[in-house]
Design a protein around this nucleic acid. Sequence first.
DNA 1: GTCTATAAGGTGATAGAC
DNA 2: GTCTATCACCTTATAGAC
Lengths: 201, 201
Amino acid sequence: MKYNKDTSEKILDAAVREFETKGYSGTRMQAIADRAGINKALLHYYYKSKDALFQIIIQKAFKVFIPKVISAIDEETDLFETIEKFTSSYIDNLIQHPRIPAFITLEINNNPERLLGLIQSSGVNVEKFKQKIDTAIEKGEIIDVEPIQLIVNIISLCLFPFVAKPIITGLVLNGDEKVYEKMIEERKQEVSKFIIRAIKK
Amino acid sequence: MKYNKDTSEKILDAAVREFETKGYSGTRMQAIADRAGINKALLHYYYKSKDALFQIIIQKAFKVFIPKVISAIDEETDLFETIEKFTSSYIDNLIQHPRIPAFITLEINNNPERLLGLIQSSGVNVEKFKQKIDTAIEKGEIIDVEPIQLIVNIISLCLFPFVAKPIITGLVLNGDEKVYEKMIEERKQEVSKFIIRAIKK
DNA sequence: GTCTATAAGGTGATAGAC
DNA sequence: GTCTATCACCTTATAGAC
């Protein structure tokens, strides 16, 4: 057996934690090795280079960050149900991986070229969602909104509280993490209520 | 005269551009010097160290990022007018400094301790805003909402489109920057309309 | 004030023993 | 598979000439 799977995963876990908080350039291979309880040489034995290791991690993170919108949209549910389902499942997903949004925005601003490739291979189709919004307008179910604005609003309300956790906790919640977590949990319902009330005719 | 103000500002401008896009650890003193058209030694003559230079810049950026909410809140306007005034002036402010939100979230997640000091010296008082929301609920002007959720929603809708510019442009707008700018410009009105419709009784 | 040269220490990556 | 030792390069910062 060439690779010890246990060691391989220990490294990956350690690398995720380092990259997520420090970003690519702020992360040291030594720090990853220390956290994994091994040495730098072994790290290079399992993963060729810092960049190779990073690629693996950012691709995994991107899959969490860009949700499978399609499955929710393809179904023959109306716009309201689509929004409810999307926001609650997306926020729930982010609660399981709370550091991903900050990590992605951190590195995506740093290296937008890499983003494009990842988006293209993500298979997300926003057009279908736009169409669903247009249909709801035509049917008179919602007020006349710009689909893009609505989509940006939905994404903003789901993601930003995770991106800006330290700011929200410090500025609005007096540093109380427990209150932060409760607030996020409530958003699984509150966000869709807020959106639907804003657009329903 | 000990310092050439022109050189000093050229350095600061160059440093802002480097730090904003690359973050602290991704920025090279050489790159700042190159951009400013001087050499590294002179850079250290004007600003003691990389860290000192960074401190100055992040403090300036923070002042843009954390708006002077107080002035809008202290006035005897109702909640709706406060929200309209806040969102439009804040977004307008961010249009002038579009890279600040990404920069702050980038570094704030990196070094949350620094954040606390900056918040304390920012003089922002969220309590007053919460009270204004509570008053509006009591008066029956808006539906019964959790003030914290509403505040988080407002901040999210203003800031996230700037934080995630590359994602939005790539994912939703097919890479068209012109469309992005038009969309942001429209948000100066759209955001408050959206919020008020969601909470008005 | 501005430059060149260089010190002092870190950083990713590899060679080679076990 | 895992380690120690080390290379080659990069980065911040300073010394000292002009």
